[in-house]
């Protein structure tokens, strides 16, 4: 077993809250995100997700909980053999919903993130920014209770970054708890109401946001 990436962290993400997770590269932001997404198990300590101990979850429980979480990965993790539309619709398809029932919803979301004319394109022909937006749309499509976004604006221009952030804020207002991992200080400054979780040297410091 290698050295601990992060340790002795205590924090909670409240329902309908909005926070940035920040810190220098390699500080453990992505590891923390993966722990919250239940794709990593901690070597020690306890993680509770939606009131359930992550260590005691069955596979079925894990599936049920993941359906309440939307995730945007730093490397997008889009499936190259599917179109943008199919990638975004994937969570709904995995839930067993009929394509005809979600088509309008997916198409509209894709148009909203500026991919209306790229629905039939596959990820290898998309630019970095387009992949980013497709990954965000995939995370949002299920209206998650918790949204975890790892550097969601890293590949888009500042204008689109603000627009996407506004989408996250809108989602937060509708009741989603949002955690955004970023080291874009300027971006965080634009959303001063957000709580900041700063990881560094394996430890976590929390700064509460200012009331908006």
């Amino acid at each position: 077993m290698g050295p601990e990436v992060v340790g002795d962290l205590n924090f909670s993400v409240a329902p309908q809250s909005f926070q940035f997770l920040t810190g220098p590269s390699g500080a453990g932001k992505t590891t923390l995100m993966r722990l919250m997404l239940l794709s990593l198990r901690p070597t020690r300590g306890t993680i509770r997700v939606f009131g359930r101990d992550a260590a005691a979850l069955s596979k079925d429980d894990l599936t049920t909980l993941r359906r309440r979480i939307g995730a945007v990965f730093q490397d997008f993790r889009l499936l190259d053999h599917l179109t943008t539309y199919e990638n975004v619709a994937l969570p709904l398809r995995a839930m067993g919903r009929q394509e005809s029932a979600y088509r309008a919803e997916v198409v509209e979301l894709l148009r909203w993130v500026g991919l209306g004319d790229r629905m039939n394109a596959s990820p290898p022909v998309l630019s970095g920014g387009e992949k980013q937006r497709a990954a965000i749309a995939r995370a949002l499509i299920v209206r998650p209770e918790l949204l975890l976004a790892d550097e969601p604006t890293g590949n888009v221009d500042p204008g689109l970054a603000r627009r996407l952030l506004r989408l996250f804020v809108e989602l937060h207002r509708l009741g989603t708890a949002v955690v955004i991992a970023t080291h874009d200080l300027q971006l965080m400054d634009q959303f001063g109401f957000a709580r900041r979780l700063v990881v560094g040297n394996g430890k976590l410091t929390i700064f509460d946001g200012q009331p908006s």
């Binding site: 599936t63 993941r66 359906r67 994937l90 969570p91 995939r138």
Partner: peptide, 8 residues
């Protein structure tokens, strides 16, 4: 990816 998007 399928697991992470909630596929059983």
């Amino acid at each position: 990816v399928l697991h992470l998007v909630g596929a059983s």
